[in-house]
Write a protein that binds this DNA or RNA. Structure first.
Lengths: 166, 166
DNA sequence: TATTGTTATACTCTATAACTATA
DNA sequence: TATAGTTATAGAGTATAACAATA
């Protein structure tokens, strides 16, 4: 076991029961910190690259080509005007194609352009490589605990915290 | 063990080794998602309340009264101009006091006003209560795994990802 | 010269309110 | 009337560049 994990274990196992409040405190310290590292990293790269929301929008549309604006807003957890602005910037940069859905003319169908696909994949690979570099030094057991904790955390939020935006 | 945890375990233990890349992917999906829940929750409250960076700035100064701008920027992980703007908004709202440090007249000493302290504590309690509500349904074991994962994650980032801003 | 902090500028994210077009 | 999307407006966060004051 690595030093970091060993340092942590006694506190986790030997003390009194961990309360939701203490967990919340750890959360409020860790998540924003990690988030700003991600943001800074994504901003560091070449040219205008992608912001985190832009990256997430492209990732979603990469897996759901032809999705409409509402789907994007829902996935990003933002209101439709916000999603509209984000999408609009990507369209202007030539990364997204906005077409009309002939069956439901109120809707738009969003798809990545070849340039958008290339841009997204480059950003994704760079981000993953950087992150893998950060996580790389961790031993296997630590990696698994991190993934497990994140997975459980994500599930708790998805189940309890209601949906946002309209 | 709760259903959620049981559902997760087989994937974590029985498959091939978890790679840093896979962990990175989970991270890129979970952290922004949790972050937006936090942001949305903090924005939901009464009046202008506090944004996440504002909250973190007040939390830091609550524990380090008299700290200077550089310290705040360092803790938030932003550049000094950004910290200056954030602090300035809090000063204008009467939540922070900006005074000159007589020993080092280049520096400013930042402290919470009584109003700032009250405001911060209200925001902190509300956020923790909400978060505890989200985490509350989780069984003890899950809670501990979440806290452990976050703690290890935070440590990995703090150790590897260099400092930001200047 | 180096450091601390601010201001100017520019861009993104984000929400609410008001609007258009379609169903 | 209800829904999909846009536009207008406003404000926060963020960076870089240029600056002032102090050490």
């Amino acid at each position: 076991m690595d030093r970091a994990a060993r340092r942590f274990m006694p506190a986790a196992r030997a003390t009194t029961r961990l309360t939701p409040n203490e967990c919340a405190r750890t959360l409020m310290e860790t998540v924003p910190m990690v988030m700003r590292f991600i943001r800074a990293e994504m901003r560091r790269h070449r040219n205008p690259l992608l912001s985190v929301p832009q990256f997430r929008a492209l990732a979603f549309l990469h897996h759901h080509p032809g999705a409409c604006l509402f789907n994007v807003a829902d996935h990003l957890g933002v209101t439709r005007p916000t999603a509209s602005v984000i999408v609009d910037r990507l369209v202007r940069r030539g990364l997204l194609l906005r077409t009309e859905d002939p069956r439901e003319r109120r809707r738009i169908a969003l798809t990545l352009t070849p340039k958008g696909t290339a841009h997204f994949e480059r950003a994704r690979n760079a981000t993953r490589a950087w992150m893998a570099g950060v996580l790389g030094p961790c031993p296997q057991a630590t990696l698994e605990r991190i993934a497990e904790g994140l997975s459980l955390l994500g599930r708790a939020f998805k189940e309890t915290a209601g949906s946002i935006g309209t």
